[in-house]
Design a protein around this nucleic acid. Structure first.
Length: 371
DNA sequence: AACACGGGGTG
DNA sequence: CACCCAGTGTT
């Protein structure tokens, strides 16, 4: 495909748009300061970028503040108890990110004197930092002219150039186009501007092309339907898995919990006892899997959708007079349930058995997604 | 290159 | 409610 505009002009136009329409986010330095060469704290940038992997700004904000309040410096996070980090991450998903976050903090504290590497290459060598995050931190925190390519930017450039090659094959081509556009001056603001544009204007559905700074040079808008970009390979359908979960409570108002193995799905997180999650229920699996003998009674099912399968859990509940000591679990008071490292599916199971277990839901305010 | 890995947004 | 979104690590 051929270039129909000057990359440098496009960069200037994008920066001008960002100056007027950028969002104020807790981990950002505002454009006026950025123009004076001020850069954000690398620890803040890194923490926010890891949290923002596959996750919306709205979901990240409270977690970001909580982490900084608990661990103000990367060395604090390095010294933290991993279990406390998992608790603070609970609900954010993709829990390997939290394990790698901790490992990365330890590496920075232990091997780099508590100072983040200031190059893309140095950053990418750290746990949990891949192509995107290395480029983003290098550009935003260190003013490096790195080509930052996330899902938002992929959408913007694929439309700008009407790239017909599907993802992920087209990724190197897209990265080259972004590299060509990225300015030496304010590369971090350019990256954040491109991501903001993708998040607020060049959206997956019904993009607001009339408001876009590129609407006169966008090939997709001129020659095709922007909404059909980026092209991507057809995704496979999700299989259904089923299982059972056992929620035991006692008169003192506590629930029996245990810890999942460190690796794999929901690794290292807390759970209520249950069966394995299989394609279908075989025979008396549910009865055999009860963590201890009790008057288990069915109390409905819950459904939870993971990345690559859908889970239907039959929930059983029982009230036990004397706390069972068998197994490696523990009895957690209802009052402190919220502070546990409970993934959402486990909160659903507990809420199904004990409707009042979690009070006070998060408030939902509207805000554009992702940076 | 394909898969494993959560949770939340949109229409 | 059905569908869409999307970085890193592993294999």
């Amino acid at each position: 495909m051929q270039q129909t505009f000057k990359a440098a002009d496009a960069a200037n136009r994008l920066l001008a748009w960002y100056d007027r329409h950028h969002r104020d986010l807790p981990w950002r330095v505002s454009p006026p300061m950025a123009r004076d060469g001020v850069v954000a704290d690398p620890y803040h940038v890194w923490l926010s970028e890891v949290m923002l992997q596959q996750t919306t700004v709205q979901a990240v904000k409270p977690y970001f503040h909580r982490f900084l309040s608990l661990w103000p410096k990367v060395t604090d996070l390095a010294a933290a108890d991993t279990e406390e980090v998992m608790k603070a991450w609970a609900g954010l998903g993709y829990y390997a990110r939290a394990r790698n976050l901790k490992k990365c903090a330890e590496a920075v504290a232990g091997n780099h004197q508590g100072v983040f590497p200031d190059t893309e290459e140095g950053l990418k060598a750290l746990p949990g930092i891949g192509d995107y995050t290395a480029a983003a931190v290098a550009a935003i925190a260190f003013n490096r002219q790195s080509a930052v390519l996330d899902g938002n930017v992929e959408r913007v450039v694929s439309r700008l150039h009407a790239i017909d090659t599907p993802l992920p094959t087209a990724k190197p081509q897209m990265r080259a186009l972004v590299a060509k556009m990225t300015p030496a001056d304010r590369p971090g603001d350019f990256a954040q501007g491109m991501m903001d544009l993708g998040a607020t204007i060049c959206t997956p559905k019904r993009p607001a092309c009339a408001l876009c700074p590129f609407n006169d040079i966008c090939t997709a808008l001129k020659t095709a339907d922007p909404e059909t970009f980026p092209r991507k390979a057809a995704r496979k359908d999700k299989p259904l898995r089923v299982g059972a979960a056992f929620v035991a409570s006692c008169p003192e108002g506590a629930v029996y919990l245990r810890k999942r193995v460190e690796t794999g799905l929901l690794g290292g997180m807390t759970e209520v006892p249950g069966t394995a999650w299989t394609a279908r229920i075989d025979g008396e699996t549910s009865v055999e899997a009860q963590p201890f003998a009790a008057g288990w009674e069915p109390c409905g099912t819950i459904t939870h959708v993971f990345t690559h399968f859908e889970l239907r859990l039959s929930v059983y509940r029982a009230n036990v007079a004397n706390r069972n000591k068998s197994g490696n679990g523990w009895w957690e008071p209802l009052a402190s349930l919220e502070e546990q490292a409970l993934p959402t599916v486990m909160k659903k199971a507990i809420a199904q058995a004990i409707p009042h277990a979690f009070r006070g839901k998060r408030d939902r305010t509207r805000e554009p997604r992702n940076t």
